[in-house]
């Protein structure tokens, strides 16, 4: 099981050069049944990462490009009158896929955003009174552009909380970029990737991840972290219980990727920046979610023992 995952990582890293840490976190996020928010400038490989993940994991892939005129129906699907049968027939939207890439999510209006986010949260879609389940696994990678641009709708805190992790790919290292320049087009490479898993296998792995042991001492560490965010003055607000659950789920997946069936404090620390960074805000910084220094503080000050 672990070797399969290692192989997946290797294969993704072969396409997305020099981003081992982020790739590992993205896979962790997938294993923990969470959704991923990629925040980066255009052209940093967000789409490539999503594509590669979908292919390697053998997941059905759909991409939704969010624009300001995107309607909820464009995401979820609509019923169309069918002349032949004389009935309304439901045409499922792009959300009915196992891996959905929601590109530039902050371009769309809050209404469309919330249609996606509700579907993410509930794992099902209710259209015209009928409830339709989404496929399982269901994994959303949303990307957003961090630069302050006109005509965007930043996701509010309550919506950000629904993403298990927020990652930023960042510029590639010099060596990696050179390799990128010298190599062929990545789209070609993508087309040749063979899936290593399928969704039943992924299911099994996810179930295994949920069984990773969390000891009392470790739960106490997570609680200490959460309490620190709730009591220390520099935090504008504390982590929600959903946040602490997310932290533990991600730590479990990380431990599993590391080949362990129990979580140790280092696992929590490894996923902490990605999991809590977008859920925290510094009190002295009323704009934006500059959780970075706060996360560093947590890692530095909260005793893990």
């Amino acid at each position: 099981m672990l070797s399969e995952l290692e192989a997946c990582l290797t294969r993704i890293n072969a396409v997305l050069l020099g981003k081992e840490a982020q790739v590992r976190l993205a896979v962790t996020c997938l294993l923990a049944r969470g959704h991923l928010l990629l925040e980066d400038l255009p052209g940093m490989g967000k789409t490539t990462l999503s594509h590669t993940l979908a292919r390697v994991m053998g997941l059905a892939f759909q991409r939704i490009q969010f624009t300001s005129d995107l309607l909820p129906g464009d995401i979820l699907g609509t019923s169309v009158f069918d002349r032949d049968s004389g009935r309304f027939v439901f045409h499922p939207g792009p959300i009915f896929a196992e891996l959905v890439l929601a590109d530039e999510i902050n371009r769309a209006t809050p209404k469309s955003q919330s249609a996606l986010l509700e579907a993410m949260e509930e794992g099902q879609v209710t259209i015209e009174g009928a409830t339709r389940p989404l496929p399982d696994p269901f994994f959303v990678i949303a990307t957003q552009n961090p630069a302050n641009q006109g005509g965007t709708f930043a996701l509010p805190e309550s919506q950000l909380d629904r993403f298990l992790m927020r990652l930023s790919l960042g510029y590639p290292a010099r060596e990696a970029e050179k390799a990128l320049l010298m190599g062929g087009t990545r789209r070609d490479a993508l087309a040749h990737i063979e899936p290593l898993l399928d969704h039943t296998r992924l299911h099994e792995i996810q179930a295994e991840v949920a069984r990773v042991r969390v000891s009392d001492a470790l739960a106490d560490y997570v609680l200490r972290l959460v309490e620190a965010t709730r009591t220390q003055p520099q935090f504008a607000w504390g982590l929600s219980p959903r946040g602490s659950l997310a932290l533990l789920a991600a730590a479990r997946a990380w431990a599993f990727l590391d080949g362990r069936d129990y979580v140790i404090p280092e696992d929590v620390q490894a996923v902490l920046p990605a999991v809590v960074g977008h859920r925290l805000r510094e009190r002295a910084d009323p704009t934006g979610l500059g959780g970075g220094t706060l996360v560093q503080w947590l890692l530095r000050e909260v005793p893990p023992l």
């Binding site: 140790i264 404090p265 530095r300 000050e301 909260v302 893990p304």
Partner: peptide, 26 residues
């Protein structure tokens, strides 16, 4: 926990001190 504290003390005598946020394995 006490055992680990003694472990830390023993190492501290040799100049290796645990940072407050450092995990046991690290």
């Amino acid at each position: 926990r006490e055992g680990y504290a003694r472990f830390e003390q023993a190492l501290a005598r040799h100049g290796v001190r645990r940072q407050p946020g450092e995990g046991p394995r690290a």
